[in-house]
């Protein structure tokens, strides 16, 4: 049992995109604020703080997670993946990110991190999704710029590419 007092900061250790990191948090500190303002991972954005817009979506221990509906204290010891961990290298984009760029699947880019995290998580588990499945998945995200269809197209194209590259790897 661990009990954190309300008026103190407590050390929180997590693995962030594969790197062990630590920061201090009050019991009431939201994971979104902890990531952004304590760990400096500002790629995860905050749009509503009541779990509707999806901008703050990250992956915690393999689970899609609204970081605004999660306390930093809850993820102590967990593995967290955020948008900063998606690209294979600092100067290179991953397959999904490239598809987004090709399809103009973002405009202001504010909601994009959450959408990418949902898709990255989903496509790893569902390599051949239908358009309806992608639309169902992404109905948990709000985007005000794109009208969504370029996002759907990018997701479907990335899924096909990922599936074929996996196939090539297993054929080899």
């Amino acid at each position: 049992m661990s009990r954190f007092k309300s008026d103190a900061r407590h050390p929180i250790h997590v693995s962030l995109n594969g790197e062990p990191v630590a920061g201090e948090a009050e019991p009431r500190t939201l994971l979104s604020d902890f990531l952004r303002h304590r760990l400096g991972a500002t790629g995860t954005h905050v749009g509503c703080e009541h779990g509707v817009c999806g901008a703050c979506t990250v992956v915690v221990d393999g689970m899609l997670t609204r970081s605004c509906l999660t306390l930093a204290a809850q993820v102590d010891g967990c593995e967290i993946r955020t948008v900063e961990g998606l690209a294979p290298a600092a100067d290179r984009l991953g397959v999904l990110q490239q598809a987004f760029r090709r399809h103009h699947a973002l405009q202001c880019g504010f909601c994009t991190a959450g959408i990418l995290m949902s898709l990255d998580h989903y496509l790893a588990r569902n390599p051949a999704p239908t358009e309806a499945e992608i639309r169902d998945l992404l109905s948990g995200h709000l985007c005000r710029c794109t009208g969504y269809t370029p996002i759907i197209q990018a997701a479907l194209e990335a899924a096909a590419q990922l599936a074929s590259s996996k196939k090539e790897t297993s054929d080899a």
Partner: peptide, 18 residues
């Protein structure tokens, strides 16, 4: 392709609260 996108797609946007 947009010059804006690489940063926005990898969490390196620079919005006011970032």
């Amino acid at each position: 392709e947009r010059v804006e996108d690489a940063a926005l797609l990898s969490g390196r946007g620079r919005f006011i609260d970032d």
